[in-house]
């Protein structure tokens, strides 16, 4: 082989040119793409909450009075609403996470098939499962709201 033959250069990884904007819109996004955005946003909210929650539970080190005062503060309507938002975040993130787990492991995607029109992609085969899980999330959010605000 000639030494002059240049080796094909390995393709360089393409930078993420869209950045944050690409999360929201980069064309015709499907339902799954919007679930992905919600999954990220809820995940970011939950990690912020987790760190705050660790600091908050540490208040027990300051004694009973500090702890009771903190718990009394959480009884305020604003904190009830925020607590419900966190609950909603957990429910959505958890159930959508289960969907992603199943996708990752190849469940509910169907078997590979010839691309014959009308095309039926694995995403479409997976969609009923998505609707079931999101329906369950909606049900739990309604039940949670009744428990948070009306019990």
């Amino acid at each position: 082989m000639s030494a002059n033959v240049k080796q094909a250069a390995a393709p360089k990884p393409r930078p993420n040119q869209l950045g944050l904007k690409g999360w929201v819109y980069a064309g015709r996004y499907s339902i799954e793409r919007y679930l992905y955005i919600l999954h990220r946003l809820s995940g970011l909210g939950l990690i912020a909450y987790l760190l705050l929650h660790i600091v908050e539970t540490g208040q027990r080190l300051a004694g009973e009075a500090a702890w009771t005062g903190l718990m009394a503060m959480f009884e305020a309507p604003l904190f009830k609403v925020l607590e419900y938002v966190v609950f909603a975040g957990f429910i959505f993130h958890g159930l959508n996470g289960i969907r992603l787990h199943f996708t990752e492991l190849g469940f509910f995607l169907g078997k590979p098939a010839q691309p014959i029109y009308p095309y039926r992609s694995s995403v479409k085969r997976h969609r009923p499962f998505t609707f079931v899980l999101m329906g369950l999330a909606a049900l739990l959010l309604i039940l949670g709201a009744s428990s948070f605000f009306f019990s």
């Binding site: 930078p15 950045g19 995940g43 970011l44 990690i47």
Partner: peptide, 24 residues
Amino acid sequence: FLAAALYHGLYSLRGIIIELPVAR
């Protein structure tokens, strides 16, 4: 719970940050 939640949360946050152009 603490270990699992911190690992999953911060590992995922790492994924989000390094995907952004600013963190190249």
